[in-house]
């Protein structure tokens, strides 16, 4: 069952088309990446998805039904611009957001405490939000998003501003949630960050979808024409006629082959001149595929 379906959604502000005839489908149990550079139309798309703004044309369906506000009780949204009531105590804040989502105060409190323990912030619950670090506040916002156990979790730039330890902690929580059957939608311009997490993606630029589908399928469409290698000795093999571009960082080389270039030939030449420790034919990253698709013309 598709959990999110956008059909030909368009939104214009003044004369600028923020989202241009965008269609996408997110199936149940998926981690989905809505990717694109800054200003591509990601936030505008999400706002229409959850009824903050209304599309000029096109249709939004959530949980296989046309959008209606009542369905928002099954959606959790973490916006890019984090917002909490600064003067409120953390626990009061959690209870307030829980109640807004239809929970009783007692249930909100119970779930808030559970989550706080899981995310290692149980000791700050009695503090005012403004007294906490940015990372802590982000964790609280994260809990506010998940408190009502939503089936669809939308996260706009979820890892921005987090240190690697906390980013990993949140990643693990999200993987857990996915394993429980929740749908998670990431929106980010840091494509490398979510590439390994997402099952499917939609790449957008200037409000239009430029690439969509399962990550594996998209990548398999693109040739493995890049080599990462580590070696010691003569580097003259990097001038091979098979190679389009090569960067050598004192024994660590990143090589791009010419179209239909022969990797085996490069390996052979390298082995004849130098001692090879590592030779890996890598697939292009989503970011590289994106840049190749839009022809390097990214409005960032």
């Amino acid at each position: 069952m598709p959990v999110v379906e956008l059909a030909g959604v368009t939104k214009a502000y003044d004369s600028k088309l923020a989202v241009d005839n965008l269609s996408l489908t997110i199936e149940a149990g998926q981690m989905f990446g809505l990717l694109g550079p800054n200003g591509a139309g990601k936030t505008s798309t999400i706002r229409m998805m959850i009824g903050i703004t209304i599309p000029d044309s096109g249709q939004v369906r959530l949980f296989d039904k046309p959008f209606e506000r009542a369905i928002l009780s099954r959606v959790g949204y973490l916006p890019e611009e984090r917002g909490l009531y600064k003067k409120m105590k953390v626990i009061d804040q959690l209870v307030f957001f829980g109640e807004l989502r239809g929970l009783t105060p007692e249930e909100s409190k119970r779930r808030g405490l559970n989550w706080a323990e899981k995310l290692e912030i149980a000791d700050v619950l009695q503090k005012k939000t403004e007294e906490l670090s940015k990372g802590m506040q982000q964790k609280i916002q994260f809990i506010c998003t998940l408190l009502h156990d939503p089936g669809l979790i939308i996260m706009d730039e979820p890892f921005s501003g987090l240190d690697p330890v906390n980013a990993t902690l949140l990643q693990d929580v999200l993987i857990d949630l996915k394993n429980q059957g929740k749908v998670i939608l990431f929106s980010t311009h840091r494509m490398d960050q979510v590439e390994k997490l997402c099952d499917s993606i939609c790449l957008i630029n200037n409000g239009k979808a430029v690439l969509a589908g399962k990550v594996r399928e998209i990548k398999s469409r693109y040739e493995r024409n890049q080599i990462v290698m580590e070696f010691e000795g003569n580097a003259d093999f990097l001038k091979s006629s098979e190679i389009a571009e090569a960067k050598n960082y004192s024994g660590h080389a990143e090589i791009k082959l010419k179209p239909h270039g022969d990797a085996q030939k490069v390996l052979h030449e390298a082995a004849s001149m130098a001692k090879v420790f590592r030779f890996e034919l890598v697939e292009p990253s989503i970011e590289e595929i994106f840049i190749e698709t839009v022809g390097g013309k990214v409005d960032a």
Binding site: G51, I52, R69, E81, R82, G83, L84, K86, R101, C144
Partner: peptide, 13 residues
């Protein structure tokens, strides 16, 4: 300024 509206609007009118 604290950007709370975006969260609130995903819940309330």
């Amino acid at each position: 300024t604290s950007r709370i509206f975006e969260v609130m609007l995903s819940t309330a009118r």
